[in-house]
Nucleic acid binder design. Structure first.
Lengths: 160, 160
DNA sequence: TTTGTTGCAAATCATTTGCAGACGG
DNA sequence: CCGTCTGCAAATGATTTGCAACAAA
C-alpha cells in the first residue's frame, strides 16, 4: 500500500473521505468523473487556498505529505486542465502557472516586471475583439491575456 | 575563419554589407547597437519575410546557410528581444514564437485549436483594462493577448 | 586592438513517460 | 475484480552555456 499514513491514520482517513472532507472537493472531482484520491484532494486544497496562479513546484511544496511525487502533480494538473478545472497562465518566465476556474469570476492579471507581484485585473473588455474573430468565422473562442508593468513600490525604489 | 563564404565571396559580401544590403536591416541593427553579422542579417531577413509568428526552429530551417547554429538563432532572438525588436508570443504549445515589432501596427492573433492556422486580430481594445492597472499604481504597462478558437473549415469538417 | 559573436558540444531543467504495484469504486 | 492512479526512475526535448576561435569596429 501507499504509505501516506500509518495503519491507524489510514482508517481515520477513510472515514474522513466519506464524511468531513470538504464537500466541494468531493463534488468537484465526482462531477468531472475523476477518482477521489489523496493526491487530488491535496492538490485541490492547495489550489483553493492560493489566491494567485501557482506553479507545479509551488503546489508540490505546499502539499503536506511529501510522499506525493512531482510527476503526480504534473499528471493531476494536466487532468484538471483537460476537465477545464484549471486554466494555464503564461507569465513569460520558465514556469507554467495554474489557477482554479471554479469559484471565481473571469479575470486577468498584472505582474510586476521587477518583484513579480501579481494582482488581478477584474474587468475584461475583449468582446469587440471576440466579435472580430467571430466575423472571421471562428467558434468556441477563448483568450489569454496578461499585463506586465512596474508596481508602485518598485517604481519608488528605482528613484533611490 | 568562419566559412560562410569562400575568400572571394567574402570580399563580395563585405562590399554587399556596405552597399546593397537591405538598408532597413542595416539601420535596424545599427540603431540597436547590434553588430552587423551574417547570422543576424539572415535571421532578420527570415523574420521580415514571414507573416506569422515563428518558432526558433522555423527560423533556423528557413535560413539559407545551414552553417548557422541553432544556438546562434536562440542567442540572436534573445538579443532582439532585449532590444525590443521582436515580441515573444505564447500559443500554449511547446514552442515560443517571435514576431518583428517594426513595420507593423500593434495587433494580436487568433489560433485555430485544431489546424493551428494563425490570423491577426487587428484591433486592440485594452485601454480600460490598462487604466485599471494604472489606478493600481503600475507603470510601463504592456500586455500579451492571444485568442484561440475553431476556424470555419475545421468547424465544417467536424460535422463530417 | 578590443570587445562582441559564433560554432560546437555539453549541460540544464521543466515536463513527460514506462512500468509494476496499489488503490478506488 | 477491473480499470485507473501513483511512485519511482529514466527519458525527453527545448533552451542555455562554456569555451576557444573568429569577426566587427
Amino acid at each position: 500500500m501507499l504509505t501516506y499514513l500509518d495503519e491507524k491514520q489510514e482508517k481515520v482517513f477513510t472515514i474522513m473521505i466519506k464524511s468531513t472532507i470538504d464537500k466541494d472537493i468531493f463534488v468537484i472531482l465526482k462531477e468531472r468523473r475523476l477518482r477521489i484520491t489523496y493526491p487530488r484532494i491535496e492538490i485541490l486544497r492547495v489550489l483553493k487556498s492560493t489566491r494567485n496562479p501557482v506553479t507545479v513546484l509551488e503546489i508540490h511544496s505546499k502539499i503536506r505529505n511529501k510522499k506525493i511525487d512531482l510527476a503526480t502533480v504534473y499528471r493531476t494538473i494536466n487532468a484538471f486542465l483537460e476537465k477545464q478545472l484549471v486554466t494555464d497562465i503564461d507569465f513569460k518566465d520558465e514556469f507554467k502557472r495554474y489557477e482554479l476556474t471554479i469559484d471565481r469570476d473571469h479575470h486577468h492579471h498584472i505582474v510586476c516586471k521587477i518583484c513579480g507581484k501579481i494582482e488581478n485585473i477584474e474587468n475584461c473588455f475583449t468582446d469587440k475583439m471576440v466579435k472580430e474573430a467571430e466575423e472571421k468565422g471562428y467558434q468556441e473562442i477563448t483568450h489569454s491575456l496578461e499585463f506586465f508593468g512596474i508596481c508602485e513600490p518598485c517604481s519608488n525604489k528605482k528613484l533611490h
